[in-house]
């Protein structure tokens, strides 16, 4: 057995990071979860269109490798703060899609008992401290969670996801500075999908790369292709090691793209059809990962088909669970404003 696994390891020696670092089973699970994110978003979108979900939502289709790659080296005790485009992060950190659907349907079985919806989806038990409706709002909170980790010596690492838009918020700059001054175990992950709503980074941001801003706060600034799972996971792995070693924060810029509009109100007038088509056809993160897995012999077509089927079933079951779950009673509208005390 040992010889066989050594042979397997040797045969992987020249492969990209994740294929050396993780087992075939773990990598298949990643593919499963990337599909789960994609189909969850599609399921949510369809449910919205059918009037089963109200409000708005921000879909992360096209950003699955980023969410999965960053969360790959995290343990269950590690924590994240997320964004308005946070469904993928939530699933990547270990949430159950049925309870996410239930939340979007406004049901009591949802993660926030129907009080938060898409924009405040959280799974505190799995270390997701919550999505956030305020651009940049979660960044200082992540630094605070990292301060708790350092003060209580829990060894937890905290990841703060945010978008390119947030890098022009004051909260971003204040938070990065404090994290660096105090050498806190936090990783700042800018998922740069090119547009803050309709405004491109070229029009909004003075630096070419958002990772360049790391230099101002004396931390490593790492740029990765956010659509290549292995690249993202490798950068995250290094940043986690640095954080756990007490060496302080890292800023990772994960360059990616959202296939859908900003939210449900988006008429898509700021991007060309060609641009969107290019990202969807040539740089889809799931396709890229699937191709690598196939090429390196980790999975075959049958295996991929089995994953797709299993995901479809989990999504269908999740939506049914949400539909069948009870709505909160109107008499409970005032609950959870304050902590109930004996």
């Amino acid at each position: 057995m040992a010889a066989a696994s050594k042979a397997a390891a040797d045969s992987r020696a020249n492969l990209p990071f994740v294929y050396r670092q993780y087992s075939a089973e773990q990598l298949k699970q990643v593919l499963y979860k990337m599909y789960l994110i994609r189909r969850f978003e599609e399921g949510a979108e369809e449910s919205y269109t059918r009037g089963l979900i109200h409000g708005t939502m921000h879909l992360s289709i096209g950003q699955e490798a980023s969410a999965m790659g960053i969360c790959m080296p995290l343990g269950e005790d590690d924590q994240i703060t997320s964004t308005h485009r946070g469904h993928g992060h939530c699933i990547a950190k270990g949430a159950e899609v049925k309870r996410m659907f239930a939340e979007f349907f406004g049901k009591t079985t949802g993660y926030c008992k129907g009080r938060g919806g898409s924009m405040h989806i959280a799974d505190v038990g799995k270390g997701n401290l919550g999505a956030n409706g305020i651009v940049g709002g979660g960044i200082p909170i992540a630094v605070g969670a990292a301060l708790s980790s350092k003060m209580m010596k829990t060894g937890k690492v905290v990841v703060s996801f945010f978008g390119d838009g947030a890098n022009n918020e004051g909260a971003f700059h204040e938070a990065l500075n404090m994290a660096a001054v105090w050498k806190l175990p936090v990783i700042f992950v800018c998922e740069n999908n090119g547009y803050g709503m309709s405004t491109s980074t070229a029009r909004s941001t003075a630096v070419k790369n958002i990772a360049d801003r790391a230099a101002a706060y004396s931390m490593p600034g790492v740029i990765v292709n956010g659509n290549i799972f292995s690249e993202v996971a490798e950068a995250s792995h290094k940043a986690v090691e640095r954080a756990r070693a007490g060496e302080g924060p890292t800023l990772i810029e994960s360059k990616t793209y959202r296939h859908r509009g900003h939210s449900k109100s988006d008429r898509n007038r700021y991007r060309t059809k060609e641009e969107i088509e290019d990202w969807m056809s040539n740089r889809d993160p799931i396709t890229l990962f699937e191709n690598e897995l196939r090429e390196f012999g980790f999975i075959d077509d049958k295996g991929i088909e089995a994953i797709r089927d299993a995901v479809a079933q989990e999504i269908a079951d999740g939506i049914e669970f949400a539909k069948a779950s009870p709505s909160p009673d109107i008499s409970e509208a005032g609950n959870y404003v304050y902590t109930e005390q004996a």
Binding site: V143, S148, M151, A171, N177
Partner: peptide, 23 residues
């Protein structure tokens, strides 16, 4: 001592409180 960063500082306090401290 914090830097002169009221927004960030308040956010750090909120995050620390959320995760078990009593700032």
């Amino acid at each position: 001592d914090t830097p002169i960063s009221e927004l960030g500082g308040a956010g750090v306090a909120v995050g620390a409180a959320l995760t078990g401290m009593r700032p």
